[in-house]
Amino acid sequence: MSNSPSSLVKGRGITKIFGAHRALDSVDLDVSRGEVLCIIGPSGSGKSTLLRCLNQIEKPNSGMIRIDGDLAGYRQKGEVLFELDDRAIARQRLACGMVFQRFNLFHHMTALQNIMEGPVTVLRRRKEEVRKGALKLLDRVGLSEKAGAYPAQLSGGQQQRVAIARALAMQPKLMLFDEPTSALDPELVGEVLNVMRDLAAIGMTMIVVTHELGFAREVADRVIFMDAGRIVETGTPEELLSRPSEQRTKDFIAAVLS
């Protein structure tokens, strides 16, 4: 299987079934290097499940995913696929950084420790050198004075910015954002979107599940509308948000904007 050099993520026929519910129904997805892709759609449409499949937190029932050429979850030898073990899957996950709706910072660690945990424990890099990098990242998300604070001492927006720094510390090839501002008070949304805007500006490849249509319009290279586990429509922000061709897309955008 050949990969065009610019294609970082390639998904074919991704299907995920929970009991009788088809959360993802044969989804095809291509993301180029440096592209910012926003996924919008009603809740239950499969947006989050798609991200979780890309990062192998969920295992798809069928379909295949390649990230930077590596087949997710398998090792290919000739015509045979060998299922990978836990450790090898953990290694594959290093390609993607993930930011969660509920932040999921490690509660028993300070902001700085949260960022250092991956590089020190997983990548086995030297603590002193990691600390320097982590402080730089904290500075980049505007929280250098919060290095010693525990998550419970931070606002939601601050926690999410630390979570972004934690993901970046692993130097991923791709960042996945799962509704990163949905759990935030309205006045805190802006600070998180600003950090994401900066990331997009330096060419990070990003897949963002979001309800922030303004952010999608401004930052995304491409927007996908999903409903009932399928991709209904895809296009540039201008095409999809201003002149949607599908009725379902029109209804959704009207409902969000009202």
Binding site: F100, R102, F106, L123
Partner: peptide, 21 residues
């Protein structure tokens, strides 16, 4: 919370490390 495990998986930790750390 299950989210703690998912966040640890997302930074590439394997099961035994997630349990311990």
């Amino acid at each position: 919370d299950q989210g703690q495990t998912e966040a640890a998986q997302a930074i590439g930790m394997a099961r035994p490390t997630i349990l311990r750390r």
